[in-house]
Simulated assay, not measured.
Amino acid sequence: MEKEFYEGKRSNRIPFVINDSVEISDGPAKGKLAAVISIEPGDDGVSYLVEPGDGSGDLIIPAEQLTLK
């Protein structure tokens, strides 16, 4: 999974890849724009480490709470 992520190969399992621009669509950081830094596979699905553009600090966000920009 990580290999595909870093090679930029999107799929149903990996909707976002390294350096994608995303918007956080739910939760406390809703509305923030961010860059995808890494993938965080888990038992409950895939999450991503993202870096918000406002410098507020990196966040781990579930894939379903992100939209591609």
Rank of each mutant, 00 (worst) to 15 (best):
G31F: 13
S56L: 07
K3S: 04
N19M: 10
V50Y: 02
R13E: 04
D20K: 00
I37W: 02
I18Y: 02
G42T: 09
P52I: 13
L59P: 01
S56W: 05
Y6D: 00
F16R: 05
E7Q: 09
I18W: 01
D43F: 12
P52H: 13
E64V: 11
S47R: 08
D54Y: 10
D44K: 08
A35E: 15
E51G: 09
D26F: 11
I24E: 10
S25A: 12
S25Q: 15
L33E: 15
G42P: 04
G42E: 06
E64D: 13
L59C: 05
A29I: 09
V46M: 10
E4N: 04
P62C: 13
V50F: 01
S47Q: 13
N12A: 14
M1V: 08
L66D: 05
D26S: 15
I61V: 15
D54T: 11
D43P: 12
R13C: 03
D54A: 12
G8I: 00
S38K: 06
F5L: 00
S11P: 08
S47C: 13
L33A: 14
E4I: 00
S25E: 11
E23S: 14
R13A: 12
S47V: 02
G45T: 11
G57E: 08
A34C: 14
G8A: 07
I37K: 10
S21C: 12
V22N: 06
S25V: 15
K32L: 15
E2R: 04
D20W: 00
G53I: 04
P62F: 05
I39K: 02
G57H: 06
Y48M: 12
P52Q: 12
L68V: 01
I24Y: 03
E51M: 13
I60N: 10
D58F: 02
D43W: 10
K3C: 01
G53D: 09
V36F: 08
S47W: 05
D43G: 11
S56F: 01
V17L: 06
E7N: 03
E51D: 13
I24G: 07
G55L: 11
S38A: 15
I39F: 04
D26E: 15
L49K: 08
E7F: 06
S11A: 06
P28C: 14
N12Y: 07
D26T: 14
V46N: 12
L33R: 15
V36E: 06
V22H: 02
D54N: 14
I39S: 04
V22E: 02
I14N: 07
K32H: 07
D58M: 05
I14A: 04
V22W: 00
E2N: 12
L68H: 08
D20V: 00
S56M: 10
T67L: 08
V36I: 14
E64H: 08
K9Y: 00
E4L: 02
D20F: 01
Q65F: 12
G53C: 06
R13W: 00
E7R: 01
G45I: 08
I39W: 01
P41K: 10
K30R: 15
E64Q: 09
I37C: 11
E4H: 01
L66M: 06
E23W: 02
A29H: 14
E40M: 14
S11C: 05
L59N: 05
P28S: 15
L49D: 02
N19P: 03
S11W: 00
S21W: 09
F5Q: 00
E64L: 10
A34W: 01
E7K: 03
A63C: 07
V22C: 11
M1R: 09
S56A: 06
G53T: 07
P15H: 10
Y48S: 03
